[in-house]
Write a protein that binds this DNA or RNA. Structure first.
Lengths: 242, 242
DNA sequence: GAGTCGAATATGTCTAGACATATTGTGCGG
DNA sequence: CCGCACAATATGTCTAGACATATTCGACTC
C-alpha cells in the first residue's frame, strides 16, 4: 500500500518528467508559479516548494521577474560513496584485519607542509598501516595528523585500529576533499602490498578540515585488481534512506 | 554588501553549527518545532523549512510524535564532478582535439551483452576515439551504443566530434553510473596513447540508461599522470552556483 | 506481566493571504 | 538613438492558522 504522495511531490515529479523527456528543453521557461497554482488548483507556496526541490537538484534556475528556466546540463554531478576501508572489506563478505607498520612524530617538513597545509616545524604524526582482507593485503594507508588540531592523537598508538576510525569519532570534521588517481607502485609500497614494483594501483587521497584548520591527510593505495569506486548519478528526487 | 540572509537560513545555519560543533551530539533530540518557533519568534513553518534542509543534507532525521534527531554519521557521501573530456582539457588551458580511430556496427556478442545489458545479436555500434590535449594523447575512449535505444546514432560518423556530445544532446538519459578503477595499459591501448605497455592508467567506465533501457557504455582510459578525479564533501547548506 | 486500545502529540502538508526584492520593460527627455 | 527613472511583475520570504497522520505513551484488560 503506497501512501498518497503529497501534492508538492506530484508537481515536482511531473515537472521533472517533462524536463527529462525533453518536452521542456534546456533554456525553456516553466509556467509562472501563479499559472501552475491555477493549473493544479493549489496555493502558490505549494508549487513554489515543488520548484525549489528542482532548484536544489540543479534542474532549473529561477530569476525574479523573469521566471524559472530549465538548466542546460553540462556538468554531471554524481554522488560517490566512500566508506571506511573496514566496511568496504566486510561488505564484500571477507574478514577484515589491520596492522600498523610505522608510527613517527616529528616537525613538519616540506612534504607535510604541502599535504597538511601547516607551517614548517608544526608537530605532525605519521602512521602507516596495512588493511587486510582475508589475510591478504588490501590497501596501504599513509596518514598524517596535525597534532595542533588534534593533540589527543599524540597519545594514541594506533596499533590495533586504523587512525581513521578514531579520528572520525574524536574530531568532527566540517570539510573533506578527495582525489582519485592511478599510480605505479614504488618499491616500498609494492613490498608492503606483496606485489611487484610498477604494478598499477588505485590511489585515494583525502584531506579533512575542521572549521578551516587541516586535521588530517590520508592516502590509500589499492592494487588495481582489488578496488574500484562506484558513483551514481544524483537522483534528483531521491528519497533519503527510510 | 551582503544581503540579509533569510530567517530559515539563519535557523538552519545555527542548528548546523551546533551539530557540527558537537554541542548537539548524534542521537540527541532537537527542540520541537513549536519550541524553536517560540525561541526565534517566528511561524512554525519557517523552522520547519530550516529543519527540512538539514534532513535533505542528511544531518537529522524526523519521526512524528517523537521529534527530530541528529543523525549518526556513517557513510561519507561526496560529490564528484565528471566533466566531458573536452571541458576537462580546455579547463586546464590546453587546446582540445578529437580523432576517431575505429567505428563498427555489429550484433551484440558476449562482451557487448555484459557491458550494455542487451540481448544477444542486438544491433550495437562501437566507436573508438582519441582525445588530445595540445596535440598529445590525453585519453582513449571506447564507446558502445545501443542502436535499439538510439537508432539515429547509426547514421552518425563520429569522425570530428566524440559520441558523448552528440548522445548528450540527442538522447536524454535518466540514470547513469560510474566506476573508477586503475589498470595496466594493454598493448593496443598503450600504442594508441603513445605510452609503453603496462603503464598504470586511470579508467572511468560509464553506463547510461533512459527509463530502464541501456543507452550507452563508455570507457575512458587516461595515463596515470594525466588525469585525476576530485570530489568534495557534499556541503550541507551549500548554495548552488549563483 | 503481556497485550490491546485509545488519547495525546509532533511532524507533514497545505492555504490564502502579506510584503520584500530583484529584474525587466517602457516611456520620457535629451 | 541613448540613457535614465519608474512602474510592472515574478520570485522570495513569512505568517497564522487548519487538518492529516504516524507514533508514542499510558490506561485498561486478560
Amino acid at each position: 500500500m503506497t501512501r498518497p504522495a503529497p501534492l508538492h511531490e506530484l508537481i515536482r515529479a511531473r515537472l521533472e518528467q517533462e524536463i527529462l523527456s525533453g518536452q521542456r528543453p534546456p533554456g525553456s521557461r516553466l509556467p509562472f508559479e501563479t499559472e501552475l497554482a491555477a493549473e493544479w488548483n493549489c496555493a502558490r507556496m505549494t508549487v513554489g516548494r515543488a520548484i525549489n526541490a528542482l532548484v536544489e537538484a540543479g534542474m532549473v534556475q529561477r530569476r525574479r521577474r523573469a521566471g524559472t528556466f530549465v538548466t542546460r546540463r553540462s556538468v554531471q554531478e554524481t554522488v560517490l560513496d566512500i566508506h571506511a576501508v573496514a566496511e568496504e572489506v566486510r561488505a564484500s563478505g571477507r574478514t577484515y584485519a589491520y596492522r600498523r607498520l610505522a608510527r613517527r612524530e616529528s616537525g613538519a617538513g616540506a612534504v607535510e607542509m604541502e599535504r597538511l597545509g601547516v607551517a614548517e616545524g608544526a608537530p605532525v604524526l605519521l602512521v602507516v598501516g596495512l588493511h587486510l582482507a582475508d589475510g591478504e593485503a588490501h590497501a596501504v594507508e599513509e596518514r598524517l595528523i596535525n597534532l595542533t588540531a588534534a593533540p589527543e592523537a599524540g597519545r594514541e598508538r594506533f596499533e590495533e585500529a586504523p587512525p581513521g576510525d578514531w579520528l572520525l569519532a574524536q574530531v568532527p570534521w566540517t570539510e573533506a576533499r578527495h582525489e582519485i588517481s592511478a599510480l605505479a607502485a614504488d618499491g616500498e609500497t609494492a613490498r608492503r602490498l606483496g606485489i611487484s614494483a610498477g604494478t598499477a594501483c588505485l590511489c585515494l587521497e583525502r584531506r579533512t578540515w575542521k572549521s578551516g584548520e587541516a586535521v588530517t591527510w590520508a592516502r590509500f593505495i589499492y592494487p588495481a585488481d582489488r578496488q574500484r569506486f562506484t558513483a551514481r548519478l544524483r537522483q534528483p528526487g531521491g528519497r533519503r534512506g527510510e
